[in-house]
Write a protein that binds this DNA or RNA. Structure first.
Length: 471
DNA sequence: TTTTGAGTTGTTCGA
DNA sequence: GTCGAACAACTCAAA
């Protein structure tokens, strides 16, 4: 073992288990573990408010796992890392790869600078099952459709899917103080009542991520395929924020699912991991995914930004209870059930005709699992402008979706309590309820709960007409 | 090169 | 009330 110090640069991999960069660094000798809040790039895609909150707790948890030796910096990684190397005579730097375009650019820059200082940089795959550049069509171009991508990836990786790697056994950490700042200096968790409310819904950090995975396997995987459509059931895994911050790796999750079951539930869940991979794949091969329509004809789509409508949507005041329940779940918990995400997104884009980017921005700020790849790809899918997109005629009806997937109304009543006493028949369309029913439930439309923002049939027709215009 | 079949998660209308 | 077809046309992937 060498006596020379190495840097392990933590990023979206806030864990000790299955962390190839950490394992390799530890195998070489003493390690200086660092985290850099890289928000000095002036880049639009810094962590949103909910993500920052999660990051705060996740970093604290990682720091505990590292016996308080995690060093924190703020600024440009491409300046901080070479500087640390000079100051501490470090000759090797280890990290796990990220795939956001601005991070890839930053990585290239760091490698160049380190090379000039004769310092070795080692990067590893810590957050994907399949490297985006390894899954290609026969002609060498990237897939644009999920199903062939997923089939190909799985056959290609047959038996070769790497097993998760253990946490380093003999991790020797650098104890002296190399400067840096404190968690409090980062200011990721302002003392707002909103923060306190959101963090009350989660157990954050690597240990809790592993626990959440085991709980899911134990009790919810057996009914995943059917149950995942019903937001009141709490049948989904809720692993997304743990995966986003790398408290869990997809290899760990894939392996544990495979060990637990090989039935349709397991397959359905694995395909969700496949979608996560596909989103990263698209972001890698189409780096403008977060800003530009993948189908350019959508550049001509007559979006119409009504600021009042947008705010009503954001605050869960559209007058469509199922939509409002979802938007309020998001605000109160930093999360939204997957099916409801599709419905509120469809409503914003296809009923309010507001550009998907406004929706993506709001999700980015409010979701604890906000992920540039998944968020961008999913919004493009819903809007119909992605390469592999929802068909144009698929416009969710928030009334019938509510009746179908929240039949007892438990989810909707919970998040829209002012309608809790309405009978299920009218819960999803209170404007159709007779006066005496509304009276009895204590609902006064336009006072205690809004009238619907738009007419579903009319706005649907308008969306279809607009889509015809651009095709 | 040409052809063929397919593409996450829906809704509505009319028989 | 149930059920099947229509809803644009296109682009992608693979044979």
């Amino acid at each position: 073992m060498s006596n020379k110090l190495s840097i392990c640069w933590f990023r979206q991999d806030l864990r000790l288990n299955d962390n190839p960069a950490l394992l390799e660094a530890a195998g070489r000798g003493p390690v200086l573990p660092i985290y850099i809040l890289d928000d000095a790039n002036g880049d639009k895609w810094q962590c949103g408010a909910a993500g920052q909150l999660w990051l705060h707790h996740s970093l604290k948890s990682l720091n505990r796992s590292l016996d308080g030796n995690l060093r924190i910096y703020r600024g440009r990684a491409e300046e901080i890392i070479p500087r640390l190397c000079r100051e501490f005579q470090i000759d090797q730097v280890f990290w796990n790869r990220c795939y956001e375009p601005w991070r890839l650019k930053c990585d290239r820059e760091i490698k160049n600078r380190l090379e000039l200082q004769s310092i070795q940089a080692h990067s590893y795959n810590g957050s994907l099952l399949w490297e985006p550049w390894q899954i290609l069509k026969k002609d060498g171009s990237p897939y644009k459709i999920f199903t062939p991508f997923y089939k190909r990836a799985r056959t290609q990786a047959q038996g070769k899917l790497e097993d998760p790697r253990p946490a380093p056994l003999n991790l020797s950490l650098y104890h002296a103080d190399p400067g840096g700042i404190t968690m409090e200096d980062l200011g990721l968790r302002p003392d707002h009542s909103w923060c306190r409310k959101v963090e009350g819904h989660w157990r954050i950090g690597e240990d809790n991520g592993l626990l959440a995975l085991e709980k899911f396997l134990e009790s919810r995987l057996t009914n995943y395929q059917h149950g995942r459509d019903f937001p009141a059931l709490n049948a989904t895994s809720r692993l997304s924020p743990h995966l986003h911050f790398g408290e869990l790796s997809p290899r760990q999750v894939w392996q544990r699912i495979s060990e637990a079951s090989d039935d349709d539930n397991a397959e359905t869940f694995k395909s969700e991991l496949g979608w996560r991979e596909f989103s990263y794949y698209l972001l890698y091969h189409f780096p403008h995914l977060p800003e530009k329509n993948l189908k350019p004809r959508f550049d001509q789509f007559p979006w119409w930004l009504n600021q009042r409508w947008l705010e009503s949507w954001q605050h869960g005041m559209t007058g469509y209870p199922f939509v409002d329940a979802g938007m309020r779940e998001l605000w109160q918990t930093g999360f939204m059930h997957n099916r409801v995400r599709m419905i509120v997104a469809s409503f914003l884009v296809k009923n309010l005709l507001i550009h998907w980017r406004h929706g993506a921005d709001w999700f980015w700020d409010c979701l604890v699992d906000a992920d540039l790849a998944s968020n961008s790809a999913s919004w493009q899918w819903v809007a119909g402008c992605g390469t592999d997109a929802s068909p144009f005629f698929r416009i969710f009806n928030p009334v019938s979706q509510g009746q179908k997937f929240d039949p007892q109304g438990a989810y909707t009543r919970h998040f829209v309590p002012e309608l809790a006493k309405l009978p299920s028949k009218y819960l999803f369309s209170p404007w159709q309820a007779p006066h005496e029913v509304l009276d009895q439930a204590g609902v006064r439309l336009g006072v205690t709960y809004p009238y619907p923002l738009v007419d579903l049939q009319q706005s649907r027709k308008k969306a279809l007409d607009s889509l015809k215009q651009i095709s």
